[in-house]
Amino acid sequence: MIHEVDEGLRRLLGGSGLEASGVEVVFDAPTRDWAARRSVPTVCAFLYDIHEDATRRGSGTQEVYDADGHLVARRSPPRWFELTYLVTAWANRPQDEHRLLSQVLACLVATDTLPARLLTGSLAELGLTVSLDTAGSGLDAPAASEVWSALGGELKASLGVRVRAPLAGVSTAVAPPVTEGLLVRSAAGREDGTEAVPGRRLRYTETAAPGPEGFAGPRERRPAPARRRRGERQP
């Protein structure tokens, strides 16, 4: 799921005009060594915090059907996680970095949810909302200064972006549907010395082996007994 969120963000930022202007969108850790190797204008979205939103944890199971309408699996409900990114802009001059960061900010604050056309893999399959919170005040994650200190770099203007995304539940396959009736075979011969009947299909007449229709096959039905009227004697 994490790499699918990365791809959604990359498509969102790239579609805002960054890629058309030659700006790279990467997800590397912005360390000093990385910054020294950078040679082109870059927007870096560094994922530095992941935790579950326990308030959205569900219960029960979801049934999964194939194209023919047969039950093939049961899936536990998805679990929601919050992914926090540190978004920075890198260029030769601070003015260019601020211009890039302003373009990124305008794109992200105008997007509350990742559009479905940008989702891939399990996120697209689930069809659930993937929300974005940009530069919010309630980000439950380490402060930007702590992140820069851990990376060994100098403090830089950045945006905090939190993405709430579902992780698909675990699927458990179920047994295939029963298509054959119950076949009874005897293990020994009869008391009169004759051989045992090879097999008999319960609830069927003159059926010794499973047919392709199983219980859906034809079987003999006896006519229902005639109903007696009240006070009428049985002959």
Rank of each mutant, 00 (worst) to 15 (best):
E4K: 01
V25D: 13
A150M: 06
A209W: 02
A20M: 12
Q234C: 02
G14V: 00
A91D: 12
A54S: 14
R11L: 00
A116Q: 14
A143D: 08
T134Q: 02
S137N: 07
V104D: 03
T55N: 04
E232S: 15
A124P: 10
P78A: 11
E125N: 14
L159N: 05
A35F: 09
T84L: 01
P235I: 02
L13G: 13
E24N: 11
L47C: 07
R32P: 05
V178M: 08
P41G: 08
L139Q: 13
V130G: 06
L108V: 11
D28H: 13
G15Q: 12
A91F: 00
G211I: 04
L18S: 13
T111W: 13
E195F: 09
E220C: 10
R219C: 11
A124K: 10
L167Y: 05
G138C: 03
H98C: 00
R56Y: 11
V26E: 13
V64H: 10
T134H: 12
Y65H: 15
E97V: 02
H70C: 03
Q234M: 09
D66N: 15
R227D: 11
R38F: 02
R201Q: 15
N92D: 13
T129N: 07
R162Y: 06
F27Y: 03
H51M: 02
S39E: 12
A73L: 07
L126Y: 05
A89S: 15
A187R: 09
P78T: 07
A157W: 06
D6R: 15
A150K: 08
Q103F: 04
D96H: 13
S137C: 01
D96Y: 01
A208L: 09
A110P: 02
P176T: 01
Q234K: 06
P176E: 03
A188P: 02
S145I: 15
A173G: 14
V184W: 00
P142H: 07
P176S: 04
T134R: 04
G169W: 05
E52N: 04
T31I: 04
A106M: 09
S122E: 10
G14P: 08
L83H: 00
V25E: 04
